[in-house]
Simulated scan of single mutants.
Amino acid sequence: MDPYPIKIKELNIEYVQNAELLLHNGYPRKELDYIIRFYIDRLREKGLASSNGSLYMKEVLSQFMLYYPEQYLELMQSSFTPDSPSNWLRLFVTGSNKNRIPLRHLLYIQFLGVDLDTFFRSDVVVGKKPDTKSFNPIFDIKKRREKWMKLVTENHGATRSELKEIGKGLHTWIFRHDREWYEKVTPRNKARKRSADSIDWEQRDTDCLRIAKQAVETILNRDGKPTRITPTNIRNTLGIGSWFNNKKLIKTNQFLQEVKENTEHFRIRKIKWAIDEMLSNEDTITPYKIQLFAGFGGSNKEIRELILQTLEEYK
């Protein structure tokens, strides 16, 4: 019985074909500087890097994980933890002289949708560009203005510092390139004679509870392997900092604790997801294959028992 779904087979076929081309076509050697600049150019074309070559790393990580199933990355010894600042994918397109194994170059090239002939025969690469104020396309300004206004509206009553924390990269761009407009539309911090008491915490709590519930729905409906529902993952989904844990947000904190997913419940949800995916791919269903597909490894007896119990619901 074949333990691998069709998508993994297709990805691996393309990888093997590229590996054979690399071995037999006598391509010219490329310096690391060229390779990094080539990657940045392709990421910019895919909308995963800014005009000056700064990577939208959250989007890069997200798109890479959508392209490659976790099971395949584990097989290729290239899995990573997205939140870790030292994961290999986060550091791959940097000026670091640290060696990068050919296997991961092939994975990256495949992710970018580039054939090896293009990679090795290209003569002109740009990479990062100087960040100048003169290069601010009208489209970029309009798009970012819309995003900033949406952020301000959805966080009514938030201070500028809080808005900066919520929309980190967006705030930096607007503040640097569109300062006059930013000053006109962004609420100013009011003088606080009574410090934090001037905040309507009841209203803030209501607003935070609403968006926390929306984040849970987003996590549950997200494509791909399930994400565990935890306060941290809810905050990450919203792009919100630690202020979300303020003790005065009573209803919000209560909800975060109530909705927090215990280990067994999350495991069952992953198992059900794996079964549904395998059924949709018309794969043969066995407990062992489910265990591998869900990313648990094949030797955990406790997981195997959960899988057997869950399979009973499908009979």
Rank of each mutant, 00 (worst) to 15 (best):
T252E: 08
N236A: 12
Q214A: 11
E312V: 10
R192N: 07
E10K: 15
E264W: 09
Y4K: 15
L209V: 06
D140C: 13
T118C: 10
S161C: 13
L220P: 00
R176L: 10
L209R: 05
L23E: 08
G224V: 08
K143M: 14
G297Q: 00
T230R: 03
A294D: 02
E261I: 03
D41P: 02
K142V: 14
D197T: 12
E70Q: 15
I211F: 13
N99D: 07
R210L: 13
K142Q: 12
K251F: 14
L311T: 00
Y56E: 07
A49N: 01
L306H: 03
N97M: 10
N12F: 14
N300D: 06
K30Q: 08
S299P: 01
F135T: 08
R37T: 03
D131K: 10
K98L: 07
I13A: 11
L103C: 10
L11K: 08
T227N: 04
P102Y: 04
I211D: 06
A294I: 04
L66T: 09
E45T: 03
E14H: 14
N189A: 10
I271T: 02
M149P: 00
K184V: 09
R104L: 06
Q63N: 07
H24S: 12
I174A: 02
D178N: 02
W201D: 06
F38A: 01
L311G: 00
R121K: 13
R121I: 11
R37W: 05
L249P: 03
W201Y: 11
T310I: 06
F266V: 01
L89K: 01
E313P: 07
F255R: 07
T81F: 14
K260M: 09
V16D: 09
I268L: 05
K7E: 13
E74D: 14
L11Y: 07
N97G: 06
C208P: 06
D2F: 11
L103Y: 09
L256G: 04
